[in-house]
Design a protein around this nucleic acid. Structure first.
Lengths: 218, 218, 218, 218
DNA sequence: GATGAATGAGGATTCATTCAT
DNA sequence: TATGAATGAATCCTCATTCAT
């Protein structure tokens, strides 16, 4: 069947190439994740990423125009995977779920996700410059914020948008701070920090959701 | 008066030299603060610091062996100034002071200090690598933690040391997270974030100090 | 012929690249040889080598991690060429050859080799620090020593290994010393020094080989 | 006695200053010797010497215009001390002394001197560039050569000057080579190398002095 | 004399990126 | 596509030397 072969050669190669390209991209992203974790985002070099991926620098630049782009794509995939793993189900939470339970579950999931994808942490913190936010960092942040806002909106349906946004920012910030401490410890101490992080969030949010139906304040 | 001359030879020369050097050091530290704020600690280069200070690289290295040393000295001076400004008085807090008031005041002071010394923030966050903690970062952190522990111990006299330390770590982390948000906003929004930060800390700590004399839980 | 293409993909690309690289390496090594001869090994700078080679510093570092590595490779190639030129035939010398003749030939060859590859001298002397021996220097030395030991063992088949080694060290040292003087002179004077070097070695070795068959001492 | 005091103040200060200067110079030279031994002449830095001497760089430059000058002065003093220690007596050697004894004694003395003044070795070898001889190196060399020539002339009274000079050069070279090996070993092995060095020199010189009175060749 | 500050060119090395193959 | 060679500016840091005090 030379014809079909011809066809294959004409149609499949694009596919194959795409497939190969996908593999390369995945390979590069994984390498980048490793390097970001090891040396931090700022200190990570594209050459190091290419080396870790076992390809030449030129190859890297065939798929990504620069380091930023790698981080962005990595963040995107991370967000995508988070959605795949935990689903959009994050958002529609049964309003009857007690806050403590909801927060506890969310924190657990976030931490689990982080442990499975340590680069998440590296990307979230990004370069230490306060003002200059990188695109990658930013995109990740925005996604996370919107997810958190989604979560919060179930509990705070009446909050003004500005307040909601602010609360989401706070929650994300607190979570990041807690995560840093959690990751810095192990065993029982880690568990204790996880509990503290939950406490922080629950106690912070509790008064805000006090007026919810079925959740009369104390 | 050969005697006085002898004295001069033994005491003055070191001082005289130090005068210029001291000025240079201050100048370099100020430049370093600027550069750290602008580009972040990790990306800051010694050459950039020297350029900012208007001196040659060699001059910088006559006073500091490397970037780390600059950061350490900067952190030390910052801590010293913090103590000068707000005094050891942070520690001995009247136990009758309501938690809210105490936390509010502490937060205000910390934020004020940060606004006056923006490099504080840059130093606190340090390089984005999770494990690799730099000396400078570390020293600053340790000092802050001990100050916070001191503060907390007035409120939590009965807490086991491990818990106290953990709580201090949490507070510092929360504060850093809040500060980042505060600094990222201005005007009313900044004020709102400051309030949120206070809320977070008060609500987090309130249950822990519930058993204090005169502060029975609700 | 997809198969041959596969082969090309697997075998040729590495080769093709190496062609240019190989040329660059040769070019860099030649430049290094020049610089080592001109300024000495210690004072030679990688930048100077790159400049001499007409490439950028970065290019040099794509092939060699540092100056040492260049010297090592240079030494290796030199040793290889020496073997190519004079062959392993150095070792198995007809035991009936008179010592004077053998030493004379060896000295001539060594000197010729040096004149063709002046960097040999620079590498042999290495940095002037007594203790701190560099790898490059060391490797060259070891190779030369083993060659000399091989030569000597034909003449001193019964010498204990320790003595043989010591004698080899002496011969190499004497040769280096003589070479320095030879290179420092020209014309008739150079010839005279060459003769003196031969005399030194022959007279030094003669008593040691006195007991050889057919070479009864006087 | 204010007058005499006045006198002292007017006359002694110059002396004192000279004394202080002498001390400084000695101090600097000793420091230089240490640094030359530790890091080698080429790599030695004037700043390091000043530091080792416990003075400021400026002070060093008040006594020596550059590194070379330090080495030269160091060499001069070394030569002076050698003369002080072993005297001009090196030259007039009893022509009846057997060559072996004379050479053995000379080698012993040279080696002893080196062990007491390790910098001697560093200075003798100097920078590894063949052509570019430094002044310091040169001066030292010249002195040593003339001493050796003196020694040799007792044994070779009839040798043409050119031959004498050449032989002296050879002896110095051989001695340097041997010294390197001697210093590189310890204990019994060192002793063995010392013996070998003596052998080399005796055997090299013996035929040359064969015609001396009372020393008929074998 | 003595100090230590100052210089600025030069050292090794790395990096993001581009280019020829 | 993929390679690896090439770049050159930028990194940190050192050095011989000079200068104001």
């Amino acid at each position: 069947m030379p014809e079909s072969q011809e066809k294959q050669e004409k149609e499949q190669p694009p596919r194959r190439r795409q497939a190969r390209g996908e593999r390369r991209i995945a390979q590069l992203l994984e390498a980048a994740a490793n390097v970001f974790c090891t040396t931090g985002y700022t200190a990570a070099s594209t050459n190091a990423i290419a080396r870790e991926a076992g390809v030449s620098p030129g190859t890297l630049y065939q798929f990504f125009p620069n380091k930023e782009a790698i981080a962005i794509e990595l963040g995107d995939r991370l967000m995508h995977e988070m959605r795949e793993t935990y689903g959009e189900a994050l958002a529609p939470i049964d309003p009857v779920t007690p806050l403590e339970e909801a927060v506890g579950a969310a924190v657990e999931r976030f931490i689990d996700f982080n442990c499975e994808h340590p680069v998440f942490f590296a990307l979230m913190h990004g370069p230490d410059i306060p003002g200059r936010i990188t695109e990658a960092h930013d995109a990740l942040h925005a996604t996370l914020l919107s997810r958190i806002e989604g979560l919060l909106s179930s509990f705070l349906p009446d909050a003004p948008p500005a307040d909601l946004t602010r609360t989401a920012h706070m929650c994300l910030g607190l979570y990041k701070a807690g995560l840093e401490l959690v990751l810095a410890h192990e065993g029982a101490e880690r568990a204790a920090y996880i509990q503290e992080l939950k406490n922080v969030l629950v106690r912070y949010l509790d008064p805000l959701v006090g007026e919810r139906l079925g959740h009369p304040g104390p």
